[in-house]
Nucleic acid binder design. Sequence first.
DNA 1: CGCAGAAATTTGAACGATCAAACTCTGCGT
DNA 2: ACGCAGAGTTTGATCGTTCAAATTTCTGCG
Lengths: 334, 334
Amino acid sequence: MAKAPTVEDVAERAGVSRQTVSNVLNTPDIVRPATRERVIAAIHELGYRRHAAARQLRLRRSSTIGIRLDPYVGGISGVVLDRFVHAITERASERGMRMLVYAARTREEEIARLAELWEGSEIDAAIITGTSRDDPRVRSLDQDGLPFISFGRPWGEDDIADPRHLWVDVDGAAGTRAATAHALTFGHRVAFLGWPSGSGTGDDRERGWREAMDAAGADGMRLTAEEGVPFGRAGMEAALAAGAAPDALVCASDSLAVGALLAVAAAGLTLPVIGFDNTPTAEALGFSSVEQRPEDVATAVLELLMGPTGEVVAPRSLQAGSAHALITPELVVR
Amino acid sequence: MAKAPTVEDVAERAGVSRQTVSNVLNTPDIVRPATRERVIAAIHELGYRRHAAARQLRLRRSSTIGIRLDPYVGGISGVVLDRFVHAITERASERGMRMLVYAARTREEEIARLAELWEGSEIDAAIITGTSRDDPRVRSLDQDGLPFISFGRPWGEDDIADPRHLWVDVDGAAGTRAATAHALTFGHRVAFLGWPSGSGTGDDRERGWREAMDAAGADGMRLTAEEGVPFGRAGMEAALAAGAAPDALVCASDSLAVGALLAVAAAGLTLPVIGFDNTPTAEALGFSSVEQRPEDVATAVLELLMGPTGEVVAPRSLQAGSAHALITPELVVR
DNA sequence: CGCAGAAATTTGAACGATCAAACTCTGCGT
DNA sequence: ACGCAGAGTTTGATCGTTCAAATTTCTGCG
């Protein structure tokens, strides 16, 4: 194909100068209407398009956001993240931003990748996911001065309220509260199958169940299992063997829910089980699950990072007001 | 943070000129070892990193590949694509390439997005997925001169052998052949649950079953259903109602397999069911499935696009020899 | 010791866009 | 008629890198 036209080519065609073309593109108001028309016509005739790299070089801004593509772990989840990435890509595009993905196996590797991208001016900001207590990425990014936001609370005592650290998360407790409220319509003995204590996310989800139970004056069993279908199954089987079958079960994840369902079926019982994440598996098997609304998370992430309608990553100072957003999930009943 | 150092800063520190620093980075062999050492030291001391945009501008090459992030459709699949995208991101990174993702709801929208990215010199090549017969994207990209490769055969009579169109695909027939061979160990009446004729992929998978059956001198039922768990279930239920329960079932997708399993369970039967895609659901429910090896597809895609070890998107002429790759999938028995 | 020729290094220009400052033109008041 | 304000437009410089050509330094040999 022929060489792509430049501002200069457009300028010549429209009988104006480089800068006027640039003005038509960036600040149309200051160009006389007649001239503007001519330039616009020339742009269309030549099929002109801004050269991204040249613009980035001059503006010292890449209009690109980096996000990690998590390694495929084989588990059931990951779908939430995939939906999130997809949604953020759409929203970013609407604001004239691009999404650059990178792969990393560990958090340390992610730190290295991000440093590369940031120092090479390839990204203006980053989105990190799956934050844990005392996440090393937070410190590192802060030090490098790379603007970032996390999907997931930092879960550290201090950080969580710190307005300098932007985050968006899903209100897990609200999700399990709704799930438990629904489960209670099947009887007052609603059990909870969650992960071992210590993970912020898991504790949060357990809290919602407990709150709903307390509010209803009900009392129920709390079962524990590592994440994963086989663990969920084993956990549930042990509970059933112990004799006490609940009226319904609320789980911390769809994986656990599937495991529990398998255990229940193997025992020849039927029992309402509610999962978390609303994965395709929940849909396929037809059990209720808490939907995280990753699309809403994506919208919130960009709003915190770029302002309500901004087209540029906002400097920290402008974000003073609201640095966090908590999305309320929705129970999908099946 | 302080302004990022440039070649000029490094040059000054090392007591050499701009160009020498550039040479150390790009053609180290032509720099005298002593000088090279000094420059490398300076690079490390200053934490210098190439400014990507400046480099892109000068080289007229972005070292970036575009790939669409498919809209979340809710089905069970999509995982194969996600794994593929993840794998290609890793491999690309090893070759110094970046992956830019974009969102598009339709093929027309995808064409528009790609034109934008290509004309703005943001990408050097594109990877398209889910190609169909007479795909409009192929014509459009060809016309624009944008180098591209597809994951999925074009399925057109002529295109498929055309060495100008690069593609990598999974040998679906080989997959169902293996699945059927395994299924035959349970008895000679092996049924196939596939999609209505007409989709290249579906026909290909059916062919594998038929070939394996013919080879074994066996004969079996062919069931049809639209993609999706409920359809698979309905299709299988109808077949079971008609009386003829097979010895085993091979399916064109995991969704169909899940549906079939539900129908089988509802009928109070047990029956080996083999799916396709080896999704987390297959793993969770513990049924066998054909694994597409998206990681191998990713490797093949980059090899065709950039040559065996290249760091640049190869011009068409260099790819003359091999323009296609067919990956053999693997049956995962559970 | 000097010199040809190779090797190593430096300088000038270019990639395409935008900012800042300079310039031209119009219309108006005096 | 003259000068001035302000809108509209153009020119020069710049972002950081790499290519091409020019220049300097080194090496081997008569």
